[in-house]
Design a protein around this nucleic acid. Structure first.
Length: 193
DNA sequence: CCAAAGATGTTCT
DNA sequence: GAACATCTTTGGT
């Protein structure tokens, strides 16, 4: 399996996020592999972003966001669900991209199920808080790998979901024709393939 | 179809 | 004590 990616994860989250659409996240599940093609993501701007967990500085939960890019940040949402991010930007920037929805892929890369919402997506991949900090890019990735998109996709943008602050910031990115369940305006197409 | 309620870890006030 | 980057179940229209 290819373990390299052409994605530049050291760029700001709002630049990385649309480039993650169509990327495939692979997670080892024993001898098997879980594969999800990302169809909806959201950017969080760390210290620059009042809606980010990292806005007020590092805590035990979000400390991994302040490290180098290319690692997972997995947190517990509403005490119930796990939600996964990919850390982006240079060390100390604490920006990250939340994985909101995807398509489960079979071993031949064909879509077999829609994974709507960050909690369901993360649960399908089997990721929990113990995976927070795991590398997903580069030769040292061990359990999870992020594979760059193999084809251009149609990207749409809206405000983010479930926030009480900065909801209007247009940092939610969706492959045209897809979206997670839940509230929010319809995406507006911004970039043809 | 849509709205409301409930579960409950981490962080903040 | 309250808010929160969520989802499921239940009950209404």
């Amino acid at each position: 399996m290819a373990r390299l990616t052409t994605l530049d994860l050291a760029a700001p989250a709002e630049d990385v996020a649309p480039r993650l659409l169509g990327a495939v996240l692979v997670v080892a599940d024993g001898a098997a592999r879980r594969r999800v093609r990302l169809v909806e993501v959201e950017a969080y701007g760390g210290r620059r972003d009042p809606a980010s967990h990292a806005y007020r500085g590092p805590t035990p939960r979000c400390a991994v966001m302040f490290g180098p890019p290319g690692r997972l940040y997995v947190y517990r949402s509403y005490g119930v669900h796990w939600c996964a991010n990919v850390v982006t930007g240079p060390s100390g920037d604490a920006s990250a991209v939340l994985l909101r929805a995807g398509e489960a892929l079979d071993t031949r890369g064909r879509p077999v199920a829609a994974l709507r919402g960050p909690g369901l997506l993360t649960r399908y991949l089997g990721l929990t808080g113990s995976d927070s900090g795991a590398l997903v890019a580069g030769a040292r990735a061990r359990r999870a790998w992020l594979l760059a998109p193999t084809a251009p996709v149609d990207v749409a943008v809206t405000g983010r979901v479930g926030l009480t602050r900065e909801q209007e910031r247009p940092w939610r990115f969706v492959i045209a024709g897809h979206r997670a369940a839940g509230p929010g305006p319809r995406p507006v197409r911004v970039a043809p393939a």
